[in-house]
Amino acid sequence: MQAIKAEGFTPDIILGHIGWGELTFVRQVWPGCPVIGYFEYFFLNEGGSVGFDPEYPSSKDTPYIMHARNAMNFANLETVDRGVTPTKWQHDTFPKSFHSKFYTCHDGIRTDRLMADPDATIGLSRLAKKLTREDEVFTYMARNLEPVRGFHHFMRALPKILEARPNARALIIGGNEASYGKKSDIQGGYRAQMEQKVGKDLDWSRVHFLGRVPYADYRTIIQLSRCHIYLTVPFVCPGLCLNRCRCRPLLWPLARLPCAR
């Protein structure tokens, strides 16, 4: 920011995500510029993602870790003129001392890009023919395949889904790292861990792990999907689905929805 300022640039307004500290020093560089900060989530000692799944209980260190994770929230409350949260549920995770600066505004949906496409097709290296909307495709997606996004529950359900739908194919999008929560102790992440547990019960010819894909491919895959499986602990919403596509969520979060998305 100092380098940009030295070139003569002064912004009319600054918009930024506060979570990783990008806005922390803007007042030192441009003290008079209006600042709006995106406040995504306040980490709770109890509730939200903490203690929700009995397979991953909290520890004696959890209160200290959660407080430390909120350092950027506290540091940037005085940095911003206004704070924005995308949903009321996320707004309400923050202490009341934050609320006087907050307003709620949903991220929105790009209806010019996210729409049904009857001609959507995608090719997979293991298949001789491209998949189309005539194929029985269901999908699961997360930035990383991990328990916070219910991946372990999805994998346990997968053998029964494939048995019940003998023509169905599962297209699974996501990386093998951990975005949230504890990392897997097994090389290859939670994917490898769950493959060890349920792999013998799966028809692997109908299971396709696609890793992380370009946005255009993701959009096409969701346009092909007949059912999208979305599991999560109460937490911030990942990218989910398309407006006006034909897929319908098959399984929603393990308890109440964390937001109205």
Rank of each mutant, 00 (worst) to 15 (best):
A3G: 14
A6D: 07
A6H: 03
E7I: 04
T10G: 10
P11Q: 07
D12H: 10
I13T: 01
I13E: 00
I14C: 07
L23A: 00
F25S: 07
V26I: 09
G32V: 00
C33W: 04
I36S: 04
I36K: 06
G37D: 03
E40D: 04
Y41E: 09
F42L: 07
N45M: 09
E46C: 11
G48W: 04
S49G: 04
S49P: 03
G51C: 03
D53I: 09
P54I: 13
S59Y: 13
S59T: 15
K60D: 08
P63E: 06
P63Q: 06
P63K: 00
Y64M: 08
H67A: 15
H67S: 12
R69P: 06
R69W: 05
F74Y: 06
F74R: 03
F74H: 04
F74W: 00
N76C: 09
L77D: 03
T79L: 02
R82P: 01
V84D: 01
P86Y: 01
P86L: 02
P86E: 03
P86A: 05
P86R: 00
T87D: 01
W89Q: 05
Q90W: 02
T93H: 05
T93D: 04
F94S: 03
S97P: 02
S100A: 13
S100R: 11
K101P: 05
K101Y: 05
T104Q: 07
T104G: 05
D107P: 00
A116T: 11
D117W: 12
D119S: 15
T121F: 14
S125G: 02
S125M: 02
R126F: 01
L127G: 02
L127D: 01
A128P: 12
K130E: 12
L131C: 07
T132F: 13
D135W: 03
D135H: 08
T139G: 11
A142S: 10
N144T: 10
E146H: 04
E146T: 07
R149A: 00
H152S: 06
H152G: 02
H153I: 11
H153F: 09
M155Q: 02
P159D: 13
I161K: 08
L162E: 08
R165A: 14
P166T: 10
N167F: 11
A168E: 08
R169W: 15
L171S: 06
I172H: 08
I172D: 03
G174T: 12
G175W: 14
E177H: 13
S179T: 13
G181A: 09
K182M: 08
K182H: 07
S184A: 14
Q187K: 15
Q187N: 14
G189E: 00
Q193R: 12
G199N: 06
G199M: 02
G199V: 00
K200P: 04
L202K: 07
W204T: 09
R206Q: 03
V207H: 01
G211F: 03
V213L: 10
P214M: 11
A216D: 14
R219A: 09
Q223V: 13
Q223H: 15
S225Y: 08
R226A: 08
C227H: 06
H228L: 13
T232Y: 02
V233D: 04
C237P: 07
P238V: 12
P238G: 14
G239D: 12
L240Y: 14
C241Y: 09
L242F: 08
L242Y: 01
R244G: 03
R244Q: 07
C247R: 08
L250Y: 15
P253Y: 08
P253M: 11
A255S: 12
R256Q: 12
R256A: 14
R261W: 05
R261S: 09
R261N: 10
R261P: 03
